[in-house]
Design a binder for these strands. Structure first.
Lengths: 120, 120
DNA sequence: CAGGTATATACTCGTCTTAGAATATAAGTC
DNA sequence: GACTTATATTCTAAGACGAGTATATACCTG
């Protein structure tokens, strides 16, 4: 049993989930929209299916995949204990993204000196 | 630049974050509470630091680490488009447990898929 | 049943990642 | 300055994972 985060670590899987968030889709639709080889799509879907992220409905030769809510709820639960750290800090995300995506990751905490006199 | 989810895919890193959600901690404290070798702790902290999950305060020879909110907000944002799938689905988990979803009808492909650590 | 479509699986290979051990850097103490 | 504590870095080997290719299975149509 792999963790929710392990599953989501794969970019193509996240892309598939995002597509499925819009509407359910067959394997072939995912294949075309993501421009991935079909075996890759099937393999990623298998991982997602076994982790409970998606389920498939059989329709003739097609398998139509749709999201299932449970892993997302699990993710949401995991996030709860951390929520207090950003509540009341609106705008922090934008600043963060500005720091991360353009240019080099500057060190925004350069106060190496100023060791507090904590004698012991 | 690694994705938020890649960072969180590592169980020890999640454990460290959970500990830090309680309060800030030095490397040595994390080392002892997680029972990990010190180089592992430092390396995971480096990953977390470079991804913006934590920042360190220098205190004598110690580095005291604490959480930063931005990556968590990013995670929260990612989750938003999926939220509609579980909102209004009170009891989705319970219904899921009662009522089995039909699986893909491959009757012979059902043999111990996903056993870890075989082959090779 | 033949042929086509749709999806799944098997296998190999290259890459990425982690643990582990050894070592390096830095700061505090005597 | 020598020693100790605290943390970081380097190197290597092993294992996990995804892409790619080939093939298998399932269903539909004529």
């Amino acid at each position: 049993m792999e963790s929710t985060f392990t599953i989501l670590a794969e970019p193509n899987r996240r892309a598939m989930l995002s597509l499925l968030a819009t509407s359910e889709r067959s394997v072939g639709e995912l294949e075309r929209q993501l421009r991935l080889p079909q075996p890759s799509v099937s393999k990623h879907l298998r991982v997602l299916r076994e982790a409970g992220f998606v389920e498939a409905r059989v329709e003739a030769q097609r398998r139509v995949y749709r999201l299932r809510p449970e892993p997302f709820m699990e993710l949401e639960s995991w996030l709860v204990p951390f929520r207090k750290f950003w509540e009341g800090r609106v705008g922090a995300l934008e600043r963060h993204l500005d720091h991360r995506y353009p240019e080099a990751p500057s060190k925004r905490a350069n106060r190496a000196a100023r060791t507090k006199g904590k004698k012991r």
